[in-house]
Computed example of a mutant assay.
Amino acid sequence: MMAQSVAVLVDGDNISGKYATDILTAAGKHGEPSVVRVYRDAQSLSDWHNAYGYRMIHAGTGKNAADILLALDAMELLLVREMRCFVIASSDGDFTHIATRLRENGAKVIGLGEEKAPDAFRACCSSFVELGTRKPVAPPRLVPKENMSVRAFDLNVRTIIAALSKNGTGAQICEVGQLMKSLHGVTTSGFPEKNWRSYFSARPELYDLDPPGAEAKVRFRPEGFSHATTDAQRKIA
């Protein structure tokens, strides 16, 4: 049985050529990478010029030129060549639209990007693979420290997770972020962690996460919140 064809489309303005091998390795797990393209200004210096196995598509110097050309090619590959598996490598949230459209038409979309990739893009992909080395995260502590601090911010997050969770399965990460913004006007942009997955991962005492994926969920750890002291309580004390 022939392996399915995979289209590998890389936003060369956003992703470094140092990830060229990692991208092809990830793509190979889903089939045969028969279309492998990187989109950028081919006239400017880049480590992509030394990446073997990629066809460089000159997008020019216009604003978002590479993004637009990549999206057009993706739809052409879907509709004309009937490809049904796409690897889109970028950390740019603008690719949420093309990822959504491809999936609506029955295609699988594997997103690849760095830690800074926004939750919106991650959630619109069938699955997401993070590129680069992440800082190690301490394993969850089932019995948190008594003096661990929980801000009102986290209490609001816990309330939203509880409201969305069914039978303890948790809430989708993207939905938590959307409700925190709409109900409380809060995003993670003001924190060292620039997306919700990173925020939850940095607090294993309070939150438990599914592996990365389009419908990944987060759950709060009751024991974490029960042993924690809120900032407000600290001030009163």
Score class of each variant (00 low, 15 high):
residue 2 M to K: 06
residue 7 A to S: 12
residue 8 V to W: 09
residue 11 D to S: 09
residue 14 N to C: 03
residue 16 S to F: 01
residue 16 S to L: 01
residue 17 G to S: 05
residue 18 K to I: 09
residue 24 L to K: 12
residue 27 A to D: 01
residue 31 G to H: 07
residue 35 V to S: 02
residue 40 R to M: 14
residue 42 A to I: 03
residue 43 Q to E: 12
residue 45 L to N: 10
residue 46 S to P: 01
residue 46 S to F: 00
residue 50 N to Q: 15
residue 52 Y to R: 14
residue 52 Y to C: 10
residue 52 Y to H: 12
residue 54 Y to P: 07
residue 55 R to Q: 15
residue 58 H to G: 03
residue 63 K to W: 03
residue 63 K to E: 13
residue 66 A to P: 07
residue 68 I to H: 10
residue 72 L to W: 09
residue 73 D to S: 09
residue 73 D to K: 09
residue 74 A to H: 12
residue 77 L to S: 04
residue 78 L to S: 02
residue 81 R to Q: 14
residue 86 F to V: 04
residue 91 S to D: 05
residue 93 G to N: 01
residue 94 D to V: 13
residue 97 H to A: 14
residue 99 A to L: 03
residue 101 R to I: 10
residue 107 A to P: 12
residue 112 L to K: 04
residue 130 E to W: 04
residue 132 G to R: 00
residue 133 T to H: 13
residue 137 V to L: 11
residue 137 V to E: 08
residue 138 A to F: 04
residue 139 P to I: 00
residue 141 R to D: 12
residue 141 R to G: 04
residue 145 K to M: 05
residue 145 K to F: 00
residue 148 M to G: 08
residue 148 M to T: 15
residue 153 F to L: 10
residue 155 L to G: 15
residue 156 N to E: 13
residue 159 T to V: 05
residue 171 A to M: 09
residue 171 A to T: 00
residue 172 Q to H: 08
residue 176 V to G: 02
residue 176 V to L: 08
residue 177 G to Y: 04
residue 177 G to M: 08
residue 183 L to I: 06
residue 183 L to D: 14
residue 184 H to Q: 11
residue 184 H to L: 02
residue 188 T to L: 05
residue 191 F to T: 11
residue 195 N to F: 11
residue 200 F to R: 05
residue 202 A to F: 07
residue 202 A to Q: 05
residue 202 A to I: 06
residue 203 R to W: 02
residue 206 L to I: 05
residue 207 Y to K: 07
residue 208 D to I: 11
residue 209 L to R: 08
residue 220 F to G: 06
residue 223 E to F: 03
residue 223 E to T: 12
residue 229 T to P: 01
residue 233 Q to L: 10
residue 233 Q to K: 10
residue 233 Q to A: 13
